[in-house]
Amino acid sequence: MIPAYQRIKNAILDNIHSGKWQAGNAISTEMALAAEFGVSRMTVNRALKELSEERVLERRQGSGTFVAQQQFNHTFVEVRNIAQDLKSANRDYQAQVVSKRTLTAAMLDDELRRKFGIDKDDDRNEHEVAVLYEVKIIHFADGQPIQFEERWVDANKVPAFIEQDFSVVNTSDYLIAKSPLERGNYTIRALAALDEVASALQIAPQSPTLVLRRQTYSAGQVVTFVKMWHAGDRYQFSGEL
């Protein structure tokens, strides 16, 4: 069961994304929200506090709570673009789209449900409504596969995503342009290559790979989740401290 404070957060976000509450608009008072959801003001306060910390809402002492003016910029979240990285290194870059498809709620595994906050009893199960887009892409450097990208995108937030030619358009660049990112998180792990990954990267099954898993947010909700698989002997992550 979804906690009461999370239900309130979801309802507020739905009102914002639907346009009912726009940037600068005042939202319902704590008292009104408590009555609407049948909860204490403390529960409402937690929901509003978290949305304020996520920069979705702005609480003004003595005036109420307002939808924040979203001034996101992609520099808030540095998203590495493999196409730019390879071209800047004077490597020949190409992308090959392996598959693109639309997923309904009934088609999602537990991991994707958790990432995108989709409940198993989601009403969209019954109506075969698109909830996520999935693309799989192989990125090549000088003709050699260097990265296998598996990406899922919220179909409601970026409806034209699936129509793009990702052998020409970079997925990250497109998402930043259409749904500016406010924050994200990622992990990097060493994993044995699954059969599909091994085939894409042209390595033996169970070979070592480096996997970057990243999810990014816009206006308080997950927009995209991606797994980027790299052959362990062809790729490294580096940066400056």
Rank of each mutant, 00 (worst) to 15 (best):
A83R: 11
E196N: 08
N185E: 12
A105Y: 05
H74E: 06
A198I: 06
N125D: 07
D14I: 11
L194E: 15
F166L: 06
L210T: 09
P180K: 00
I203N: 03
M31D: 14
S40G: 15
F161P: 00
R183M: 15
T224M: 07
D110T: 14
A34R: 09
S238C: 12
D123T: 10
Q236I: 10
D92H: 09
L33D: 01
Q22T: 13
R7L: 13
S99D: 12
V129M: 10
I138S: 01
D122C: 04
Q70K: 08
D85G: 04
D92F: 07
R80T: 13
R183D: 14
Y93T: 01
P208C: 07
R59N: 11
R46M: 13
R183L: 13
I137D: 06
Y174V: 01
E53F: 05
F237C: 02
H17C: 02
I138N: 01
N156A: 14
A47V: 05
A204C: 10
V67S: 04
K9T: 08
N170G: 06
I137N: 02
E240Q: 13
L112V: 12
V131N: 02
T224W: 00
A141E: 04
A4H: 09
R151D: 06
V158H: 01
P159G: 04
N10L: 12
T209G: 08
E128G: 05
Q147R: 10
N156F: 15
R101V: 00
G143Y: 09
A192W: 10
S218I: 07
Q94C: 09
V44S: 08
R234N: 06
A105Q: 07
S52N: 15
L57M: 05
L112T: 04
Q6P: 04
V56H: 03
R46I: 14
S52Q: 15
Q71D: 12
S99K: 11
E36F: 09
I203S: 01
V168Y: 09
E111C: 03
E134A: 02
T187E: 14
N185T: 12
I118K: 03
G64N: 07
F66K: 02
A23T: 06
L51D: 10
V44R: 04
A193F: 05
A141R: 08
G184Q: 06
R80Y: 08
R41E: 15
N10H: 11
F166R: 02
V98H: 07
A4K: 14
G19D: 03
W21N: 08
I146T: 12
R214K: 15
L51E: 09
I8Y: 01
G117S: 02
I138C: 07
V211D: 04
S52V: 15
L181K: 09
V222D: 03
Y133N: 12
V226N: 09
V67Q: 00
G19F: 03
W229V: 11
V77W: 04
S40L: 06
S207R: 05
G62L: 02
W229K: 06
S179C: 10
K227C: 10
G143K: 13
L132F: 04
L241Y: 04
M228A: 14
S167Q: 14
D119S: 15
Q202A: 15
S63P: 03
R91L: 11
R46W: 09
D165F: 08
T75S: 14
N73F: 10
M31G: 11
L103H: 05
